[in-house]
Amino acid sequence: MLEITKAGNHGILLPQLGIGLDYSGKKAQHVFVSHGHADHIPWKSNAENVYATPPTKKFM
């Protein structure tokens, strides 16, 4: 079964897959940002890849 972790104010983490959703923690290799809110941006993330729409990337 896939583990899903609500990471407090840091978004959602799928630890077995190394994926974060609106995740700003340090435990994801891939982060998907759904929209441009400051609390959804992976400011201190160690993510190898951050995925977002072009307008969201521009905001970040």
Score class of each variant (00 low, 15 high):
M1C: 11
L2T: 14
L2C: 09
L2F: 11
E3A: 14
E3W: 10
E3M: 13
E3F: 08
I4L: 15
I4N: 06
T5P: 02
T5M: 11
K6Q: 14
K6P: 08
K6F: 14
A7Y: 10
G8S: 12
G8M: 10
H10S: 15
G11Q: 00
I12A: 04
L13W: 04
L13T: 02
L13S: 08
L14Y: 11
P15G: 05
Q16R: 10
L17D: 11
L17S: 12
G18Q: 10
G18K: 06
I19P: 07
G20R: 00
G20D: 01
D22G: 06
D22H: 08
D22L: 05
Y23T: 05
Y23N: 04
G25S: 02
G25N: 06
K26P: 06
K26A: 13
K26N: 13
K26T: 15
K27A: 15
K27S: 11
K27Y: 03
A28L: 01
A28P: 01
Q29R: 12
H30G: 02
V31S: 04
F32G: 02
F32D: 01
F32V: 15
F32W: 11
V33W: 04
V33H: 02
S34H: 05
H35I: 08
H35K: 12
H35N: 11
H35G: 13
G36F: 09
G36V: 09
G36R: 08
H37Y: 13
A38M: 09
A38S: 12
A38W: 06
D39I: 10
D39T: 11
H40W: 02
W43F: 05
W43E: 08
W43D: 05
K44G: 12
K44D: 12
N46W: 08
N46D: 07
A47D: 00
A47R: 01
N49T: 14
A52E: 03
A52C: 15
T53W: 02
T53A: 14
P54I: 04
P54Y: 09
T56L: 07
T56D: 09
K57L: 15
K57Y: 12
K57S: 07
K58Q: 12
K58G: 01
K58T: 15
F59C: 00
M60S: 09
M60G: 10
M60P: 03
